[in-house]
Design a protein around this nucleic acid. Structure first.
Lengths: 195, 195
DNA sequence: TTGACACCACTCTAGATGTAGTACTACGTT
DNA sequence: AACGTAGTACTACATCTAGAGTGGTGTCAA
C-alpha cells in the first residue's frame, strides 16, 4: 500500500473513466494501470483488492463533486422565485451531465453497493448528506418550496439524467431542456413568488 | 444455437437472476448454467456470445413485464380522481419493487447499452413504447393530468425505486410509501377531481 | 544510509469459452 | 415392428486468456 496521494488520486480518476467506459466487468487493476498510463502492477500496489478500490472510488467521486463555491454564491443572488430555481436546476443538470463518466461510474457503484456492505454504507451516508445539504441550502436561501419539494426535484432530475446518459434517444436531447423546466414548474407550488 | 424455447426462457430467467445478484462481472455462461441447473456448456449452446445473451435478456425482460390485464382493468374502475392515481402508483411501485432482480438487471442492461448499440436500440424502443403506453392509458382512462404529468411521475418514481433497491437506507422503507403519495400529490394539478 | 517509491518481469492461478463426442428421445418411414 | 434421422442433452476436454500478486532492482530524497 503506497502513500503518494497524487498518484492514488490519478489512479482513482482513471478507475472512474474505466468504470464508465468498460463497466464493472472491465474494471481491473491492469485496465486502471493502462488508463492512468502507469506501469503494470501499480494499481495493485495501491489497493488491497477490488473491493478496496471500489470503496476508494466512492470517496474520490465525492471529493471531486464538492460543489463549486462560485455556483453556490450565484444561487443567492437576485430574486428568490421560481425562475431562479429553474435556472439553478438547469445548471445542476448541466454540471452533472458534463461529468458523464463520473455519473455513470456512480451508477455502477450503486449496483455494486448491492453486494458490498461497506460501499453501501459509504454511499448511503454521502447521498443522505447530499440531499440534506440541498434541502438546507434551498430553504436557507429562501427559495420557494419545502423539503419535500427538494426531494421531488432530486428524484425527477436524477432519473432524467439517467435517461439522458444511458438512452439518449428516449427523450431527444432538445427536449431535455424543456423537461427540466417542466419538472420545476410542476413541482414548485404557485406561480413564482418566493416561499 | 438450440431451439427449445422453454429452455431458452429458463436460461434467460436464470441470467436475470445472476445479473442482479452478481452484476455484469458475474454474468458468464457458466454462472447461468449453474443458476439454471443445467449442464455446463448449455448456455454456450443457446447464445452466440455475451452480446447476444444480453440482448436476449432485454427481450425476455419485457416479455415478463407484460402488464397484468386484471390490473389494467382495475385502473378503470371507480372515480377517476387523484386518490385513484395515488393508488395506481402505489401498485406500480410495489409491482416493480417485487421484481427486484428484474429491475436491477435492467439497470445493468442500461449501463451495458452504453457500449452496445443493438441493446441500446432495443431498450430505447421498449422504454419509449412503455412511456407512450402509460400516457395513452392515463389520458384515455380520463385520469387527472396530461402527458407531462405522466412523464414526471415516470421520472420521480423510477428514481425512487432505484433508491429503494440500491441504497435502502437513504429513504427508510417506512417513508417510501409516504414519498409515493407526496410525488403524486405534488405533481398532479388541483385537489383531486377528474381532469 | 535508509526508506519509500517507481518500475519491470515473471509466475501462478483461475476461469471461461467453445467444441468434439456420445447418448438419448421422438418422430417419421417402410 | 424395425430402422433411420434430426434435434437435443450431456460430458469432458483443450485452449486460451488475462489478471493478480510479488520479488527484485533502480532511483530519489531526507
Amino acid at each position: 500500500m503506497r502513500q503518494n496521494p497524487a498518484r492514488r488520486a490519478a489512479l482513482l480518476d482513471a478507475a472512474i473513466e474505466v468504470l464508465a467506459r468498460e463497466g464493472a466487468r472491465g474494471l481491473t487493476f491492469r485496465a486502471v494501470d493502462v488508463e492512468a498510463q502507469v506501469p503494470n502492477g501499480t494499481a495493485s500496489n495501491y489497493f488491497d483488492n477490488r473491493d478496496d478500490m471500489l470503496t476508494q472510488i466512492g470517496y474520490r467521486f465525492y471529493e471531486r463533486l464538492e460543489p463549486d463555491p462560485g455556483m453556490l454564491a450565484a444561487g443567492l443572488e437576485g430574486p428568490r422565485d421560481r425562475a431562479k430555481v429553474t435556472q439553478l436546476m438547469h445548471d445542476l443538470v448541466d454540471r452533472i451531465s458534463r461529468f458523464r463518466s463520473g455519473y455513470l461510474a456512480l451508477l455502477e457503484l450503486r449496483l455494486e453497493a448491492t453486494r458490498r456492505p461497506e460501499l453501501r454504507r459509504l454511499l448511503t451516508e454521502r447521498i443522505r448528506a447530499d440531499v440534506d445539504a440541498n434541502i438546507r441550502y434551498h430553504t436557507e436561501a429562501g427559495l420557494p418550496g419545502d423539503a419535500t419539494t427538494v426531494i421531488l426535484l432530486y428524484l425527477a432530475l436524477n432519473w432524467l439524467i439517467v435517461e439522458r446518459l444511458t438512452l439518449p434517444d428516449v427523450f431527444p436531447e432538445d427536449r431535455i431542456h424543456d423537461l427540466v423546466t417542466d419538472v420545476v414548474e410542476r413541482i414548485l407550488p404557485g406561480p413564482g413568488q418566493s416561499a
